[in-house]
Nucleic acid binder design. Structure first.
Length: 722
DNA sequence: ATGCCCTATTTTTTT
DNA sequence: AATAGGGCAT
């Protein structure tokens, strides 16, 4: 193979990173600077030049999508199979380790992975069993606490009782939660990481084995690693200095879920002789866009420091549109989209990015009425749908009776007369005697502790599950799924549900059978796990991409968070208003505000050719009108890269603090005269500067004493003449 | 066990 | 405004 293909397509900085001798390395990769390319080529370099066998290479990502892409690109570049290479997500790799060393990890070898939904249910039922008031102790908060502790590597037994009432209660629940999970053979996401860490930490032989095995360790999106993930990487690479991390501190937007930018600084301290390479040449966007991004992010402090540049030209200036309200904003955006399409552009090259999901609505409505195909990201994924989770729970329960999460889920779905009272009694018994729900059920039946009705119902359920277990003994995976879906009564249940919804659910269940048929066991790790367990794990760890029907050319709607890593020729960032973006909850904390700014930076750098920023002067939010000020981020973008747009000409600049240009004032005489003093219920007193339009469209520009200059639609705003 | 009404809530999300 | 979840009545 020609080695030059690994090096030739790279720029100087990329080449420096790729061809460096094996050593610790920090690659600071700006947006659109080719970070995946560097990772892929670095791996190729190790294999071809340093003659490191693929099985000695480890590469870690956060999402399955990124892992798959990396594997695909390595295979493409080297024209080899990357099967023996360990490439995967933190959770996927941790899971693989735990399966392979279940015993040393103190797990049953048929342990099950539960997703956050399962976890929340477990917490809820725990609180119930422990007789803890869940209105005083919201299950979500408890879940958050437990995960937070695990991410810091802290077990219940490590937690000191510092006398704090809140902490003491949490500790009690955390402890009970751990016991329950152990009893049921359940492992949550955070537990995968924590236990994988403990496994290596506490087994010297294993640790040494893997340290030798993974001669080169690569990490993508390093700025998103949390404490336990970094600790795990540390264990694997300590002393070997063989950790190659790629990240961008300016794109760290997941601090709120435990990501620690500080890991970058820790890395610099803990890996002596490491090299730092900055990738600053951007291959995605035009000059104006990069300039805006650079200037904006420069307002953050404690950055590693990077400045993106491009060989491409200046391109179009960024457009700023001030809408009257959120509907006008949607009108404007969709109008621009129609123009783009009319000019021959693809809808799939367009993205509408917003801070919060609730904002998608008016855009959807407008796109709908104009018949523009669109796709909203962020809904439920395939394996998260209720009907699918129910079917999976039957599958899990049939092979693992002690799986309490699954037991709770389907014991009365479809309804079979097992009510709250019976369940409560069972939960208490289970909790008191440290039994699984299945064992508690058996116990109550044996001891005749139930009224006949409930007893029969419960007996019927246990029988059904046992029957499912024996009936599926010798079946193929997809046959098993098919049989369980049918015999569980789920199909019947959903057939009865009102038309459209039930139908879709039945179809999804059929799709599940299909997914099982297509499930490629070879593609998974070929350890000593049953096919079914592999399928169930796949369902938990890879909830499905949702991008099933991408074939249609449609506009992409998503939050700024989910846009990370993507690029579009035409980008609309909407709702740039104080309180929305930056979000209200972040405005009084410097750290969180800086994260919002990074989010804005991520948004801007998604655009390749044209970027539109919009904000509204009035917005209906939570049922009431608000009159938000333009986002502070707008003022952090250089004016010379910004071009303000008004649908109608002759409009002033709401951002400018200068007095409006009186020379342009209209001479029209309506109800409001120029210079007229008026009063607004929110903005207070001000003076009319100009007027425009008639009837419903009539607008006035007012210079408010405290709120600044605003355009108001008379049809919406309540103005009073003073 | 199901359905209806009232109330509380309202960033961001992958595994 | 809209939605989700809990409580209560049937």
């Amino acid at each position: 193979m020609d080695v030059s293909s690994i090096i030739a397509p790279l720029n100087d900085a990329q080449r420096l990173a790729v061809s460096a001798p094996p050593q610790a390395m920090l690659v600071l990769a700006g947006a659109g600077s080719g970070k995946t390319r560097v990772l892929v080529h670095r791996i190729a370099w190790h294999i071809k030049i340093n003659h490191i066998s693929p099985q000695h290479i480890l590469a870690v990502t956060f999402t399955n999508k990124a892992a798959n892409e990396m594997r695909g690109r390595v295979e493409e570049l080297l024209e080899i199979s990357a099967r023996s290479m360990w490439i995967g997500t933190f959770h996927g790799l941790a899971h693989r380790l735990l399966r392979q060393h279940a015993k040393q990890a103190k797990l049953p070898d048929n342990f099950q992975v539960m997703d956050s939904d399962d976890q929340l249910r477990i917490v809820k039922r725990l609180l119930k069993a422990m007789n803890i008031d869940d209105s005083k102790w919201p299950p979500k908060q408890v879940q958050w606490f437990i995960n937070g502790q695990k991410e810091e590597g802290i077990r219940a037994r490590h937690m000191a009782d510092n006398g704090d009432f809140y902490q003491r209660q949490m500790l009690i629940v955390y402890k009970a939660y751990e016991e329950l999970c152990d009893r049921s053979g359940l492992v949550d996401f955070a537990e995968l990481l924590l236990r994988a860490h403990e496994l290596l930490r506490d087994n010297e032989d294993l640790l040494n084995f893997y340290r030798q095995r993974f001669q080169q360790v690569h990490v993508d999106e390093f700025q998103d690693t949390n404490t336990i993930q970094y600790a795990w990487l540390r264990l694997l690479t300590e002393g070997n200095n063989n950790l190659f991390v790629v990240g961008d501190d300016d794109q760290s937007i997941y601090g709120w879920r435990g990501a620690k930018i500080e890991n970058i600084f820790a890395f610099q301290k803990q890996y002596p002789g490491h090299q730092v390479v900055k990738l600053e040449q951007n291959y995605r966007s035009t000059g104006h866009i990069l300039k805006a991004a650079n200037t904006l992010i420069a307002n953050n402090d404690s950055r590693m420091g990077k400045e993106l540049w491009t060989e491409a030209g200046e391109g179009h200036a960024i457009s700023l549109y001030t809408a009257f309200n959120e509907q006008d904003e949607a009108y404007f955006v969709v109008e621009k989209i129609r123009q783009w399409v009319k000019d021959g552009g693809l809808r799939s090259d367009i993205a509408i990015l917003y801070r919060s999901n609730a904002q998608s609505r008016q855009f959807e409505e407008r796109l709908m009425t104009t018949g523009t195909p669109y796709r909203v990201y962020g809904g439920l994924r395939f394996f998260e749908r209720m009907e699918i989770k129910n079917a999976l729970a039957y599958l899990r329960l049939a092979s693992h009776h002690d799986d309490d999460a699954s037991f709770e889920r389907v014991v009365n779905t479809p309804t079979r007369g097992i009510g709250a009272k019976t369940m409560d009694d069972m939960r208490v018994l289970a909790r008191e005697q440290s039994l699984s729900m299945w064992q508690a059920a058996e116990c109550m039946l044996n001891e005749n502790r139930l009224p006949p009705r409930a007893s029969n119902a419960l007996k019927g359920f246990l029988q059904l599950i046992l029957q499912l277990g024996t009936d599926t003994q010798d079946l193929e995976l997809y046959e098993t799924v098919k049989l369980v879906v049918e015999k569980s009564g789920l199909i019947e249940l959903y057939k009865k549900e009102k038309q459209d919804k039930g139908e879709a659910r039945v179809e999804n269940l059929e799709e599940l059978v299909n997914a099982a048929r297509l499930f490629d066991v070879d593609n998974q790790t070929e350890e000593n796990i049953s096919e079914l367990d592999m399928f169930l794990t796949h369902a938990a760890l890879e909830a499905g991409d949702m991008q099933a029907d991408v074939d249609e050319d449609c506009v992409q709607l998503m939050t700024l968070h989910s846009a990370k890593g993507l690029e579009f020729k035409l980008v609309f960032m909407v709702g740039l208003e104080e309180g929305l973006f930056p979000s209200q909850q972040s405005t009084d904390d410097v750290g969180r505000l800086q994260e919002e700014r990074r989010l804005c930076y991520v948004g801007i750098t998604r655009a390749m050719e044209q970027l539109y920023l919009t904000h509204a002067e009035s917005r209906r939010l939570y049922g009431k009108d608000s009159y938000p000020r333009p986002s502070r981020f707008l003022k952090e973008i250089p004016p010379e890269s910004l071009q303000e747009i008004r649908m109608r000409a002759n409009i002033s600049r709401p951002l400018a603090n200068s007095n409006s240009d009186l020379g342009k004032m209209s001479t029209k005489t309506g109800k409001y005269r120029l210079g007229q003093s008026v009063k607004h219920e929110k903005f207070g007193e001000g003076v009319v500067l100009q007027t425009e339009g008639d009837g419903d469209q009539e607008r006035v520009q007012v210079n408010f004493r405290n709120a600044g200059i605003k355009w108001l639609m008379l049809a919406y705003a309540k103005l009073e003449i003073v």
